[in-house]
Every structure is written in structure tokens, then in C-alpha cells.
Design a protein around this nucleic acid. Structure first.
Lengths: 213, 213
DNA sequence: TGATTACTCACCCTTTAGGGTGATTGCATA
DNA sequence: TATGCAATCACCCTAAAGGGTGAGTAATCA
């Protein structure tokens, strides 16, 4: 099997050197090009249309365009490349932005060289490497964030709100719950007041964004 | 430091025995109680109001109430417990459901005992253990999922759908866009057909779940 | 050039939604 | 025991939503 082609975009010399040197000890990888900025990378791509890479190690704090902004530009040129973000920040917002934009792994620079190589192995097999603390940030995000206080509704109100989200009419809901349409309306009026909204659309938005219960 | 209190909810004897035995070799952990179902766990909690646990290993495929459903019940009793899901499935939907409901890690039963212990260590330090393949699933989810073909709407239709999601009426939308209410209606009728829905609620659900664009 | 499509608007109609007020029952709890 | 509250239902009203049909303009594309 051919060695995987690795490129790196990182402006700090020390990190560049130590990482590339360490990677070069592994036969399964081959460090190809090292760039000091996204612009540098773009310039190289313009000059070498056939340039390919399997994995790109991308620093998030670059001079000029940031690594975060760079992700989409890289994927434009190399749609199939796996991007591993290297970063000193572990802030939820930045991490999620990177992952949503197309990076597939996210490693702290505090990680050992061994961990970086481990991440490359995982990524090349179609996985995603995430350090535990970063994984936890993501779980927190999936939970909708720990801070926002949740509006809480009664069982019945929740039942009805769920049905509304499914696009059911008051009449249908009343039939499903074996109660009168008027009762359904009554519940809905109350829950609108509690959620401080005035119509279905807003209530559904809150519900689907997990801001309720 | 006191050993961490571990409980397990798992119906298969073999797995129960091998996991608890392996954990017992580690002084930092102390296997407390082992349950064979959520109902079993609830029953125990009812009898022992002071029951505590730091980490719960939870099988997803349980008789009676599933592990997935069980998460919220467990968190009701033990709001601060860390839940590690044990599973044979690696389907995106199930995984995300579990993580969104409050599980903080998700391990395949194919994982080694060593990995399970490693996960417990990470979780106890406030991290989240995720196997690479599961981490990738989550990244895919954050990306909006690669497989689901996106319903694509025109600029105008998107604009209007966004406004609908915000709870704006046809009249308000027409004023904001400087067009007639009839035109707004016309766009909405078309986009309902394209999305194969019949009302606002369903359209908004699709929109907010990112199944559009 | 002729077809397609997005965007615009109009008029017909019925159903649904939403706000207000008020009443009854039953349960829980102060 | 009284007070509160969830849940049930009723009647008043207006506004909004939704379905059908048809039609004109401008841009794009084969």
C-alpha cells in the first residue's frame, strides 16, 4: 500500500518541524508539502493543479485567513481530503464551527505527537479522532447546552405540542386524545402563554430546538 | 481518593460477569449494583432512596424498557451520574438519540474491556469517550448527514420558509418582501408541494431539522 | 426560437387557528 | 378546609391558512 500523502498548514516553525519529523519516521505516511498559510496553500494549488493530499493537518490560528475560514477553501480544491484541526483552543463554538464546516478531527496541540499520528491512522480508516475533552464539548452541544433554562410543560401540553409539530390539526389531535377540540384549544392557549409565543410556528420552533421540557 | 461507584444495567449474564470481574481488578472503581433491566434499577431506587452511583454502564438492548428510554429515568433519579452506553448498534440515529438524551459516552460491545475501563476513566475526569467510528457518525450528523438527499428550494422559497419558521404571518411576510400576500401564498403552495407537506407545521419541522436546502 | 422555470398577482372557496370569557371536576397541598 | 391548578368543555368572535385555477413577465437554456 502506498503511503498516505500528508500536508500541513502551520505557521510556527517549531511545531512544523517536530510534527513533520515525527511523521517521517512512519512509513505509512509521507509528508508532502508544508504551508505557512491558507494563501500559501492556495498559491501552491494554483501552480500545481495536480496537487493531491490524503490528509491535511491544519492549524487554526494562522496569519491572514484563519484555519477555520480556510477549511472551505481547502475542500473546494480537495473535496475528499481529511482535515485534522490542530489547535490550542478548546472552545465549543470554534470546535463545532470547524466540524460543521468540514473538518473531521480536532486535536489539541497539547496532544502528544503519538496522538497526532494515531489521529491520522483513524482518519485514514474513515473514523474521527476526538480528544475526550472535545468529545464532551460536542456532547454538551448535542444536549442543547447546559445553561439555558428549559421551559417546562405538563404531560398533556407536551403531548399536544408534539402533535402540533407533526402537523396535526386541532381536530385530529382531539380525536387521537379522545378529548374535545375545545379542550385541545384550551391546552394550546395555555401553553402559548407559558412559552410566550402567539402561534404554532414559534411554539414548534422552540420545541424542535429542544428549548422545552 | 475513594473508588468510583459503578453500576451496570445489562441483561446478558456473560457480559455482566466479564465486565464486572474486569472492573473489580481496578482499585479506582468499585462495582456496586448490577441490574438486568431499567425496571429492576427503578425498583432498587425505590427501595434504597440513598442509592448513589458515579457511573452507570447501560446496555441499549434491554428487555422491557430500552436503554435509550431508560436514560431519562436514570437521570431523574441520579441527575449527576455519567452514563456510558454499551451497544452492538452503530446507527447514527440511535447514537445521537442517546447522546441527546443525556448519555455521555457510547461504546461498542466489540470494544475491549480495556477500552471500557479507559472510557470510565475519561468520563470520570469530565471527558467523553467515543470510538472513532462513532465520532465520525457524529461529525456526519453535524455536517447535516451525507446520505439524505436535501430538498432544495429557490432563494425566495427559502426566504419565505425561514419567515414562516419565525412565526410571521403571510401578511407580515408580504410586507417585508414588498410583494403581495397572494404571491407569498403562491410561493408557499409551491414549496409545500415540493416538500410534500400540507401545512406550516410540517414544513417548519423539515426546515428546523436541516432537511432542506 | 421555443420551452422551462422563478416570480409575480388575482379571485374563488372552505377549514383552521387564535383570543376572550366562563364553568366544572378532581387532585394535591398548604 | 380552602386554595391552587391541571384538565375538561362551551360559545363568542375575527384573522389566518390552505387548495384550486389561471395568467403575465423576465430570465435561462437547449
Amino acid at each position: 500500500m502506498n503511503p498516505l500523502k500528508i500536508s500541513m498548514i502551520e505557521d510556527v516553525d517549531d511545531i512544523r518541524n517536530s510534527v513533520t519529523k515525527y511523521i517521517s519516521f512512519h512509513d505509512e505516511f509521507e509528508v508532502q508539502e508544508v504551508f505557512s498559510s491558507i494563501e500559501d496553500f492556495q498559491h501552491h494549488c494554483a501552480l500545481h493543479p495536480n496537487f493531491q493530499a490524503d490528509i491535511i493537518l491544519l492549524d487554526i490560528g494562522l496569519p491572514g485567513m484563519s484555519g477555520l475560514e480556510g477549511i472551505s477553501h481547502i475542500l473546494e480544491r480537495l473535496p475528499d481530503v481529511d482535515i485534522i484541526m490542530l489547535t490550542t483552543y478548546e472552545e465549543e463554538e470554534v470546535i463545532l464551527k470547524a466540524l460543521c464546516t468540514g473538518a473531521c478531527s480536532y486535536i489539541s496541540k497539547k496532544a502528544s505527537l503519538k496522538q497526532i499520528v494515531e489521529a491520522m491512522r483513524i482518519v485514514s480508516k474513515g473514523g474521527s479522532y476526538m480528544s475526550p475533552s472535545i468529545a464532551r464539548e460536542i456532547v454538551n452541544h448535542l444536549l442543547g447546552g447546559p445553561k439555558q433554562e428549559q421551559n417546562s410543560l405538563t404531560e398533556r401540553q407536551n403531548q399536544i405540542l408534539k402533535a402540533l409539530s407533526d402537523g396535526k390539526s386541532y381536530r385530529v389531535i382531539s380525536e387521537e386524545l379522545f378529548i374535545s377540540v375545545e379542550t385541545v384549544r384550551s391546552h394550546i392557549k395555555k401553553l402559548y402563554r407559558q412559552l410566550q409565543v402567539n402561534n404554532k410556528a414559534e411554539a414548534i420552533s422552540l420545541y424542535l430546538q429542544g428549548k422545552i421540557k
